[in-house]
Design a protein around this nucleic acid. Structure first.
Length: 801
RNA sequence: GCGGGUGUGGCGGAAUUGGCAGACGCACUAGCCUUAGGAGCUAGCGCUCACGCGUGCAGGUUCAAGUCCUGUCACCCGCACCA
């Protein structure tokens, strides 16, 4: 019989669907396993071959866990709000809701054709009112707890999307999504106080099993630093504050720098003698886009303020104040003390403006470069700090500053608050109303969901206003507090909103009373294993940890961390080793692969392609090897013989294979698990037959990887029930060893012979046997034996002189 | 600049505590089978005619190094004036 993969795959997919084979049960007494993959954005392009890499890997884990007796939750859904859909809708004059529906249907068909064991009864869609009701509800809780606020500020504005972006969405000064220029625009925006959770987000990383690069990237992004905030007086009486991590170098301060946007400049305007020059600099700095700030040579520029000087609190020296765009208004206090002797940027600036450089930590040569090492230097030229180590000096100066009331210890973060407004149509409406009398008033929870109005025109506006603003019927409402006429917030939430809590909804997706029941959250949380892309490390992964920690703090969820374990897959590149893209013409269509090779081959190939964590190029030649393997598996049916045991000649290899496959699945080393199964079938096929017992084990081991063909072979061979209802095989460590092994005989570390010995041979016997070998005898003849080693099951090494 | 990672055949990639480098697969070569083959089967396949040489490069430790140590080069990813 031919291996008709198309018929077989369709047949089993229908059975799984009809019978709900992979639905998680609500039997909360069973041990649970919650496996999660990032739900896709249903784009018009359809599934990318990259999606199944992640989905197949955790599908394998999920399928194995089921056979091991776990109640498995492996859900899927749609992160369907967002710009590409909206843009597509505008271009083709179709409502985004319709576009979304079509795209979801297509994605679902594609996912089903790959045989993933998703629990489709728990499918969620972020654009459905029954779902976004709870997204809005969470926003209201954030607002009520003071974590959502509206603020006028300079934000990143994508000139093409005509929409603001979060800091996390700006990459190298351009829009993360479309690559267009990002400019600064002053707008009133809803913000979420993620900074309030900076410490918790950072410290929580210690309690989770995330791969290192994820932890490192998140912790760099949060960027905690311990330092001191210090007050400097000025010659005109006004004090101003700076932040430093090197308070120990206070005696080396030779000038101060403020950011061009620093508010004190306005305040001091009349006293600054060269205010025109200062204003001109401010303007030129404001004009620089993010792109210019990061990509251009970091040549230091700046202007010295005339008529005002700062006074160093440690020695009352008067020092000049500059403004320069190398100091950021968004970090610390927007002003710094400059220590050119021990900071590279200050050193460059001092050289350029010919400012004095004072050495206060001995160990380098500050005339050549800044000496920034603070591990072993000793303080010099530093008054009461002289002679101390940097570490001691830091402590002493902090105590001194605190005592005098001119400074205090301060922790700072690079993390900024999350810009949460988007001036677009296809997103969750923000459930807030603005009343002239009451200000911003939250909608009553009973009013949720606040539905997105159905309109004909939803083009973005050039004015920076949301398209919703034009829908006056919807916008005009009454104040929930005082009943006076009021207007709705017209910005919508960013795409990251719905995905920040979707994994909670899967636990109890049809609940209309709460976002999920306490029992369901208690049982299923936290996600045991979450796999997703590295590109989400400082976006979705961080945002959702933030929301979850907040929900934990207000008692909605029972765990402080949403994900116990996080892994990440590498990209699948085009055949030419470049990123797949339409413009490069190297896109592989998963539908064609399923059609030409079958889902099982596709799954197997994507797992066999290489190290799961690394990027790997697609190879249309290599996929054939996986197809051949399945053809050989199919042919096993013809050589099945009676016998429930493993035959002696294959027993050790069977046990080793069970062990290897079981362990490799847990560490996502799917490529070596498959290689093991390939080797095993080679061995078995060479014997000309396979016992029912061997066949059974082989089928179960292969099932997570290639679920359709194994189910089919299973029934064809006359086994009871579905393979999916059986148990994962056990291995016996004692049986993993062969009775005899080939060991290597080395003379002076060079291989001279190979001999077969019993596994439990004594060292002396092994060495004697080795010496008896002709080639070995030749090498050691007439020489002095210095040393003889026997490494059990590995080798004998004879050292001669 | 800072942080993280990777260097192994023609290619994708394997190699417990240091213990047979190149598992498994692709490609390739030869033979068989077939009316035919972008099918299948069998065998070979790191380099070198060979002594030997081989895991980015140079040293070191060891009976033994892809693996440990020191130095160095290249590439990839993230952050990017964070004081």
């Amino acid at each position: 019989m031919r291996y008709d993969y198309t018929a077989i795959e369709k047949k089993w997919q229908k059975i799984w669907d009809d019978e709900g084979t992979f639905c998680a049960t609500t039997d909360y007494s069973k041990p649970k396993f919650y496996g999660l993959v990032e739900f896709p954005y249903p784009s018009a392009q359809g599934l990318h071959v990259g999606h199944p890499r992640s989905y197949t890997a955790l599908d394998i884990v999920a399928r194995k866990k089921r056979l091991q007796g776990f109640n498995v939750l492996y859900p899927m859904g749609w992160d369907a709000f967002g710009l590409p859909t909206e843009n597509f809708a505008i271009k083709n004059h179709i409502h985004p809701e319709i576009v979304t529906k079509d795209n979801v249907a297509n994605f679902k068909k594609q996912l089903k054709s790959l045989g993933f064991s998703f629990d489709w009864s728990r499918e969620v869609n972020t654009t459905e009112p029954s779902y976004y009701k709870w997204t809005q509800w969470i926003f209201l809780q954030l607002y009520k707890n003071g974590l959502a606020y509206k603020k006028e500020m300079a934000v990143n504005w994508c000139t093409s999307c005509k929409c603001v972006l979060a800091n996390e969405e700006v990459v190298n000064g351009v829009c993360e999504r479309c690559g267009s220029e990002v400019i600064h625009k002053v707008k009133s925006q809803w913000m979420l106080k993620i900074t309030e959770y900076a410490d918790k987000l950072l410290d929580g990383l210690n309690d989770v099993n995330f791969i290192d690069r994820v932890k490192v990237q998140q912790s760099n992004w949060i960027g905690r630093s311990y330092g001191t905030q210090v007050k400097f007086n000025t010659t005109i009486g006004d004090e101003f504050e700076i932040y430093t991590t090197r308070a120990d170098t206070l005696f080396g301060v030779t000038y101060m720098v403020m950011s061009p946007e620093h508010p004190l400049i306005e305040k001091w305007a009349e006293k600054i003698e060269n205010i025109d020059e200062v204003r001109a600099y401010q303007q030129s700095a404001a004009k620089k886009s993010d792109f210019e700030r990061t990509e251009l040579a970091k040549d230091k520029t700046g202007v010295k303020l005339s008529g005002v000087k700062a006074i160093n609190p440690v020695n009352n020296t008067e020092i000049p104040i500059f403004i320069s765009d190398y100091v950021l208004i968004s970090y610390g206090t927007g002003a710094i003390m400059a220590v050119p002797g021990h900071d590279t940027r200050d050193w460059e600036f001092a050289k350029k403006f010919d400012l004095p450089i004072i050495e206060v930590v001995a160990g380098g040569d500050v005339t050549v470069e800044a000496y920034t090492d603070c591990s072993e230097g000793v303080m010099v030229n530093s008054g009461f700090l002289t002679g101390l180590s940097v570490e001691d000096a830091k402590k002493k100066i902090q105590e001194w500053l605190t005592e005098k009331g001119i400074g205090f210890v301060k922790t700072n973060f690079k993390l900024r608050d999350w810009v949460f407004s988007r001036q677009r149509y296809w997103g969750e409406p923000i459930p807030m109303v603005h009343c002239d009398k009451c200000g911003y008033v939250p909608l009553d929870e009973s009013e949720l969901p606040l539905l997105l109005p159905n309109v004909d025109s939803y083009e973005p506006t050039d004015t920076g206003e949301s398209p919703l603003a034009k829908i006056t019927d919807w916008v005009n409402t009454t104040c929930p507090k005082c009943g006076a006429p009021a207007v709705r917030e017209t910005d919508t939430m960013p795409q990251w909103a719905g995905s920040s809590w979707y994994f909670l909804r899967y636990c109890d997706p049809h609940n209309d009373k709460e976002l999920a029941s306490k029992e369901a959250l208690e049982y299923w949380g936290p996600v045991d294993w979450y796999n997703g892309g590295m590109e989400h490390t400082t976006l979705h992964l961080l945002y959702s940890r933030f929301w979850h920690k907040f929900l934990y703090d207000i008692g909605v969820v029972p765990n402080p961390e949403p994900y116990a374990k996080r892994t990440s897959h590498g990209m699948i590149l085009g055949e030419n080793g470049e990123k797949m893209s339409k413009s490069r013409g190297n896109v592989v269509n998963p539908d064609e692969i399923v059609r030409d090779y079958g889902a099982d081959t596709m799954r197997l190939y994507e797992m066999f392609i290489g190290d799961f964590e690394k990027a790997a190029p697609w190879s249309s030649a290599s996929i054939k090897g996986c197809k051949r393997f399945l053809e050989r598996v199919w042919a096993l049916a013809d050589i099945i013989t009676d016998g429930d045991d493993y035959r002696a000649e294959v027993e050790a290899e069977m046990h080793k294979a069970i062990k290897k496959v079981t362990e490799d699945i847990e560490t996502l080393k799917m490529n070596t698990a498959i290689a093991t199964l390939m080797s095993l079938i080679n061995t078995i096929t060479a014997t000309g037959k396979i016992t029912r017992g061997e066949f059974k084990t082989f089928m179960i081991l292969l099932n997570p990887f290639a679920p359709h063909i194994t189910e089919e072979l299973w029934v064809n061979a006359g086994f009871e029930g579905m393979l999916n209802g059986t148990q994962w095989p056990e291995f016996d460590e004692a049986k993993c060893v062969d009775s005899a092994v080939e060991i290597v005989v080395q003379v002076n570390g060079k291989i001279r012979a190979r001999i077969n010995v019993p596994v439990d041979i004594a060292a002396a016997d092994a060495i004697a046997l080795a010496k008896g070998d002709e080639n070995v005898a030749k090498e050691i003849d007439g020489k002095t034996i210095v040393k003889e080693l026997y490494v059990p099951k590995k080798l004998v090494n004879i050292v001669v002189r």
